[in-house]
Design a protein around this nucleic acid. Structure first.
Lengths: 103, 103
DNA sequence: CCCATCTTCAACCAAATGGTTGACAACGAT
DNA sequence: ATCGTTGTCAACCATTTGGTTGAAGATGGG
């Protein structure tokens, strides 16, 4: 959905077409996104194209960065030292995420 | 929840404590996050502290950036020109997001 | 005016989410 | 061995989410 809109504006019908889903469902979905400010609507005859609001990306990124920064600061400081002192051993069981972050 | 973990690792009990919610609820929630790879668990006696996985932030940011780039490229190219040509008028009704992006 | 097209509204339904309580497993301390 | 602490499992319930169908509003073309 977002992927399609990132490519370009589209009507509800166009959004629903490629998928096995009713137009009403998409209309509902878009209403939520619009209410949340993620998309805006324009008016072209009986059509109301959807436009992805790019500013939202910035907000999301900002939100994420706030927590990332906290986590990384802590990580780089004393967390691991203490963990090592008390024989802490992490087991992530999520190999796709492991990338040698912990020394 | 994420906010608390960004500050530092915590046990299920510590996470539940500040809120009016049962330990079981938090345990369930954490299980979801752990299954999704957002947090890892360690083992300290009968306690199992939760650790926020920082890599996830990178993945999120990467995902977002992909779409942001597409949207902005399109935006800066011909989208608005065409819109203007056919008398397009956008109405976002989301003032908190408006910041003079569209000329 | 009436029709075709596009969208939305309303009522409804199934599944997912997020919470509860109660039982129980694991562990350290006594 | 037993007990207190911590976390999890299971069954259950309410709310939200995401879908459906059917009817109705809006708009331009004949």
């Amino acid at each position: 959905m977002v992927a399609r809109l990132a490519v370009g504006d589209a009507t509800v019908g166009e959004l629903a077409d490629p998928y096995d889903v009713s137009v009403q469902a998409v209309s509902k979905h878009i209403k939520v996104l619009a209410d949340a400010g993620l998309v805006s609507r324009s008016k072209d005859a009986q059509r109301r194209p959807c436009h992805l609001e790019a500013e939202v990306f910035d907000l999301m990124t900002k939100w994420i960065d706030r927590y990332r920064q906290q986590a990384q600061e802590r990580f780089e400081r004393l967390d691991d030292v203490l963990a090592e002192m008390r024989g802490d051993q992490r087991h992530t069981n999520h190999p796709h995420l492991e990338q040698g972050a912990a020394s």
